[in-house]
Every structure is written in structure tokens, then in C-alpha cells.
Amino acid sequence: MEPGSSRPGSRHIGGAGLRNGSQEMDDISVILAAPGWRAAVKRPEALARRAVRAALREAGAAGAITVLLADDASVKRLNGTHRSKAKPTNVLSFPAGAPGQLGDVALALGVVRREAREAGRNAAAHLAHLVAHGALHLAGHDHIEAGEARRMERAEARVMRRLGLPNPWRGVS
């Protein structure tokens, strides 16, 4: 489905109208838009759901979230449309601004794989970290100021510990 199109009854990822029909009781939907995710990460949809749940628990937040596991071209379009940046990025968060809806998170497969490889990290751990990062943004965390950034990094480290995955900030200066 192309950005800008929509399905009846859909919520919107960055205005793209993407939503899948399968929802869990906690209303976390995962759309696998780039099949390469399955080659890069075992059961990426389940891992994304676990990461969202852990991040929301950490933040003490609740609400519907959709995670889009996309390719670089799709995230590049979203980044260009919503942030005026003509390049793909690892993760984008789109707050919903509606009761019961936290928003949407989109990830770019190629960027995530490349970053994981360059950092010597497992792609699954990097995916979980970035999904948690996006969900924490939707729950109100930010990293513009130094103090905010440190609090968000600590929250991400606690989420990763809950998931049994390594701290992404260990060894980073």
C-alpha cells in the first residue's frame, strides 16, 4: 500500500492510512510492509509487540500503537513528507493526538540492518531498541535537551533489560 492511501476504518501512520486488521487485546498492530524483515530478524512482529509493551510499561502509558516495518524508500517518503528530510532514517514516531491512541512508529529495514552491522549488534536487538525508542517518544519521552536524553537512554536500557537484551548505550560515549 502506498503512503497517502487508506483502508476503511484505518488509523494513520504519518497520514499514510496504514493499519492491519489483526490486533491484540493491548491494541498493538504491526504491519510487515517489507518482507526482508523476516530474513533479518526472527519473528519481527512478535519482537516489535514485546518491545512496545515493555516501553509502555516503563513509561506507565497505555494506548494503541501501530508499528510499520518498512523498507528504506517508504521511510524516506515519510521522512520527506513529515520532516522535510530527503533520506531514510532508522525510526520515525507519529503521535496520534486522539484519546486512546498513542500513535505510530515506522522503521526502515536497510538503515536498521546497516546500523546494527556497523555497531556490531544483533539486528533483532537493534530493532527492539528502536521500537522501544519510538514507543517511548509516543509516551512523552524526548531527547532534545541533555537531561531529557539521559533520562530517555536510561528508560531504553531498562526496557532492553526487561526484554533480556543488551543495553544499547553500554560503551557509547
Rank of each mutant, 00 (worst) to 15 (best):
Glu156Gln: 15
Gly14Asp: 00
Ala59Leu: 05
Ala108Trp: 01
Val67Met: 03
Leu32Gly: 00
Ala123Gln: 14
Ala64Glu: 15
Arg162Met: 14
Pro3Asn: 06
Pro8Ala: 15
Ile65Cys: 09
Ala86Lys: 06
Leu68Lys: 02
Arg151Met: 11
Gly17Lys: 12
Lys76Met: 06
Arg53Asp: 03
Gly17Ser: 12
Leu107Lys: 00
Glu24Lys: 07
Ala51Asn: 10
Met160Phe: 10
Asn167Leu: 09
Lys42Trp: 04
Leu78Ala: 11
Ile31Gln: 03
Lys42Ser: 12
Arg53His: 11
Pro166Cys: 09
Ala70Arg: 02
Arg11Tyr: 07
Asp27Met: 14
Asp104Cys: 10
Gly134Pro: 00
Asp72Leu: 04
Leu32Cys: 02
Ala139Met: 08
Gly9Ser: 14
Ala51Cys: 10
Val41His: 13
Gly60Glu: 11
Asp72Val: 01
Leu127Gln: 10
Val172Ile: 07
Val67Gln: 12
Ala108Gln: 00
Ala62Met: 05
Ala96His: 03
Ser74Lys: 03
Val75Phe: 04
His143Trp: 11
Gly63Phe: 12
Glu148Leu: 04
Gly21Arg: 10
Val41Leu: 07
Leu165Ile: 07
Gly171Cys: 07
Ala132Lys: 11
Leu136Phe: 11
Pro88Glu: 11
Leu78Asn: 07
Arg11Leu: 09
Asn122Ser: 15
Arg161Pro: 01
His82Glu: 03
Val67Leu: 07
Trp37Ala: 06
Leu69Ala: 05
Ala124Leu: 10
Ala96Gln: 02
Arg162Tyr: 08
Glu45Leu: 06
Gly9Trp: 12
His129Thr: 02
Gly80Asn: 03
Ala59Cys: 03
Trp37Ser: 03
Val172Phe: 05
Asn20Ser: 08
Glu145Val: 01
Ala106Lys: 01
Gly80Ala: 08
Gly134Ala: 15
Gln101Pro: 00
Ala61Glu: 12
Asp72Ser: 07
Ser74Asn: 00
Met160Pro: 09
Ser29Asp: 08
Glu156Met: 13
Leu130Trp: 04
Ala119Lys: 13
Arg114Thr: 09
Asp71Ile: 01
Val159Trp: 05
Ala33Cys: 06
Met152Asn: 09
Ala157Ser: 15
Leu165Asn: 01
Glu115His: 13
Ser6His: 12
Arg43Cys: 03
Val52Glu: 05
Ala139Ile: 08
Glu118Pro: 00
His133Gln: 11
Gly63Gln: 05
Gly9Ala: 15
Pro166Ile: 11
Ala119Met: 05
Lys76Asn: 02
Phe94His: 08
Ala132Gln: 10
Gly171Asp: 04
Gly164Leu: 01
Gly15Asp: 03
Gly110His: 05
Glu115Trp: 12
Leu163Gln: 06
Asn122Met: 14
Asp104Met: 07
Glu115Val: 12
Glu156Tyr: 09
Gly140Arg: 14
Gly9Thr: 10
His141Thr: 07
Arg49Ser: 07
His143Thr: 06
Glu153His: 13
Glu153Trp: 12
Asp71Phe: 00
Arg151Ala: 15
Ile28Cys: 02
Val52Thr: 02
